[in-house]
Structure formats: structure tokens, C-alpha cells
Design a protein around this nucleic acid. Structure first.
Ligand SMILES: [Zn+2]
Ligand SMILES: [Zn+2]
Ligand SMILES: [Zn+2]
Ligand SMILES: [Zn+2]
Lengths: 133, 133
DNA sequence: TAACACTATGTAATAATATAACATTTACAA
DNA sequence: TTGTAAATGTTATATTATTACATAGTGTTA
């Protein structure tokens, strides 16, 4: 049984916006979009984003400073994330590949260090962009 | 035979600083440190950083907005990078593990997409910080 | 040499991303 | 109902990164 996180008002507004979007959203673009709903300041956005990331409802695409909704229902805590990023159209997809996540979650370095978390970003051309070349 | 990149004046100053550092450096901390050498503006730093990243002499730690020298002589182009990051002391090391890099370089997703580049960041506690717990 | 292309530099202004500090309110369990 | 943690509201500010434009150096080739 997964822990149920009841989103607060601001968290819900911001999550809904990200979830409906088909592309990663940046914090200030989120801010702009929710101003009609009474969210006026960057900090209100960042606080909601922090919480949503913490509980795994969204992920931050570090190389883009942007946020997407988790596309992988089982990934309630964002400790093991992998994404594919098209360098042409900037389409981002979350990769959910059991073998990959097992491989990385069990990865141990030379010094015997085991990691509690990872983030992997793959870059290339998506199908669409590849066919246009 | 690897292509020899003769660094320009600014590139050399900034690379030397990063290379001597035992921790990732942020752009504005670099700027502060090279002002005595005649580099006065953010853009001069960012231009040198961009070039150094492009030729693989340094890497950007995306989750930290910071830069470290490549610790892996064979990685002249930064298309396949992996790092371990201590969440307590912020120590960062570049991982050079042939199996891992082969696994990731050959990774193909469900849709058959192959990637030309990846960046992986592992998080956890380094040896030192673990023993202090 | 002269013409050209390319890379790098210098400088000012500004855009984009993110956090600090403080006051108040809400949710909810002991 | 009282204590505590979480969330909110607001202002100001810090940090990270780029645009725009002018100039200078480097190397190649006609
Ligand atoms: Zn996810
Ligand atoms: Zn694409
Ligand atoms: Zn490297
Ligand atoms: Zn540590």
C-alpha cells in the first residue's frame, strides 16, 4: 500500500498544470500560467515543486531546469529516474525499464560505495526528428 | 591519436583553476577567482566553460550547476559521463567503469531508440560521511 | 601579402533560475 | 484544545546564464 499524499491547494494547481502538459515546464512558465489562480510569487511555485519532487509526483530534468509529471506509476519516490531527451525538439520521456533500473540500483563502485539514488539522462534524436534528417 | 586542443588564454586560466580544485566549482566562484587575471565578466567565464565542456576537458555536474575537470583521460568528448555525489559533503567523483559505460552506451529503449550521449549522477554518502553517521 | 573565415575576446545590459527572511494560517493528531 | 508540522503569503535578493554588439587574434589560401 502506497502512502497517500493529499496535495495542498497550490501543489494541486501546479501538479495539474504539469500533468496536463506534453512537455517539461520551467518554473517561471508555471508561475505565469498559475497567476490567474492566485499564485503570485516564485517561491510559491518552487515550494510546491520541491514537495512534488520529494513525493515523486514530478521529476526535475536537471539538464533543462524543467519539470515533468512522473510517467511511471510505480515510481512514487524519485530515487531512480531515467529520461530520454531529444536534442532537436526537446521531447522528454521517462524511461521505465526494469533491467536498467535494477542494474543501476545495484551498481556498486570500485570503492564499494552503494548509492541510494540516481538520475540518468540520455540524449539523442527522437524518432520523428531522426526521420527528418 | 587524439586531437590536440590548444587552449586559448582564458580557457587555460579557467581550466587550470578547475583542474587544481578538489571540488566542483561554480561559474561565479570561478569568476571571482580569475578576476586578478583580467577576466572580468560572467560571459568570459561561460564561454570558456562551454568550450572546455565541448572538448571534454571538464564536465558539468548538472544537479549542482558546477564544473569539475575530467578525471578520466580517455573521455575526451563528454558524451558518456557518470558521477558519484555525496549528499552530505558534496564530494564528487567521476566514475570510470568500463562495464557501466558499455552497458549504457549500448542501451536501447523499447522504441528502439539508441542514444548518442548520456549523463548519470549517483547520490549517496561517501565513505567518510558514512563512517560519521 | 591580402583576403577570408573562424575563433576568441571585451563590455554592458539583462534574462532566467532560485533562495532568504519573516509573518501568518491551516491541517491534524495527541 | 493545545501543540506541532506543513503550507501559505509577501518582499527582497541571490545565483545562474544569455543577448547584443564591437573588436582582435589565428590560420588558411589566393
Ligand atoms: Zn517517475
Ligand atoms: Zn525530436
Ligand atoms: Zn571525463
Ligand atoms: Zn561525504
Amino acid at each position: 500500500m502506497e502512502k497517500q499524499h493529499n496535495l495542498s491547494k497550490n501543489q494541486k494547481i501546479i501538479f495539474d498544470l504539469i500533468d496536463k502538459s506534453h512537455e517539461p515546464l520551467k518554473a517561471y512558465s508555471i508561475l505565469f500560467n498559475v497567476q490567474k489562480k492566485g499564485i503570485n510569487a516564485p517561491l510559491q511555485v518552487y515550494r510546491a515543486l520541491d514537495k512534488l519532487v520529494e513525493i515523486g509526483k514530478i521529476h526535475k530534468i536537471e539538464s533543462r531546469n524543467a519539470f515533468i509529471a512522473c510517467q511511471n506509476s510505480s515510481c512514487q519516490i524519485s530515487k531512480a529516474t531515467a529520461f530520454s531527451i531529444c536534442e532537436s525538439c526537446e521531447k522528454v520521456s521517462e524511461i521505465s525499464n526494469t533491467k536498467l533500473s535494477k542494474y543501476l540500483s545495484n551498481f556498486t563502485d570500485e570503492a564499494g560505495m552503494k548509492y541510494s539514488k540516481y538520475n540518468l539522462e540520455f540524449f539523442g534524436l527522437c524518432k520523428k526528428c531522426k526521420s527528418k534528417e
